[in-house]
Design a protein around this nucleic acid. Structure first.
Lengths: 121, 121
DNA sequence: ATAAAGTATGAAGCATACTTTATACTTTAA
DNA sequence: TTAAAGTATAAAGTATGCTTCATACTTTAT
């Protein structure tokens, strides 16, 4: 169980960002029972995993609400197994589409390179 | 030479979005010489190509300023050829990184699927 | 000729995703 | 023991990328 500072170091995300994500409902920390002197929030390894997923998914263009769906499909107990699989499969399809689009953009850029090579003097 | 309405139809982008992109310096239309009755802006096929590139690049997570770089590398005459090639190659590398990250996220989602399959009953 | 549709422009509004600030309390290290 | 560093919370501020609105003029179709 770690505090937010350690979580930040492990994930490479700023503390303020982590708090923002937590406030957005992407995960939850816990208050330690029995401690009355402070109000600190503790995080377990699952949160680290979730933050890694958030970071990676964000970097390829998923929005926070898309990522929330993904995380809910992973760990929300009120979602049925078939529904979860459906969501995960939809995300996989979305990723495959993105890869296709990236390859298309790649093609376009290679075309631009040839154009620059040809005409730009 | 087309008006904004036709450009919108060709690219599938809303007129307001096209105007916003033009205002952001991603491309320029032209005022027709000799016409004094109106103030309409005309666009040539190059603008259509640029908008297609913008649409595709955006859909895979490029920001407008990254896309601006890309377009400048393609058609800004004040940028030297080697510099252009450098920018285009950097973009290609960025795309390859994105593809790698997408494959990583794909892996993660497949892991989630196995987890759901195993433990979620 | 006139109503509907298209174009131009500036400004305001909005959603997403943070980031910064302010304030206050807690823990830790010298 | 006290100054520095860490934590919590709410609220305001910022950047990006649009979208909507208001107003006004132009073109097109009937």
């Amino acid at each position: 169980m770690k505090l937010i500072n350690q979580l930040s170091k492990e994930t490479g995300l700023p503390i303020a960002t982590i708090r923002f994500y937590e406030k957005s409902g992407l995960f939850k920390g816990q208050k330690k029972k029995g401690i009355t002197t402070n109000n600190y929030t503790y995080y377990d390894d699952e949160v680290t995993e979730k933050l890694d997923l958030i970071r990676d998914a964000k970097s390829v263009g998923f929005t926070l609400s898309e990522i929330k769906e993904l995380i809910d499909a992973w760990y929300n107990k009120r979602i049925s197994k078939p529904k979860k699989m459906e969501i995960l499969d939809a995300k996989l399809a979305q990723i495959n589409d993105k890869i296709k689009e990236l390859n298309a953009v790649k093609k376009q850029i290679n075309y631009l390179k040839r154009e620059v090579e040809k005409y730009d003097c």
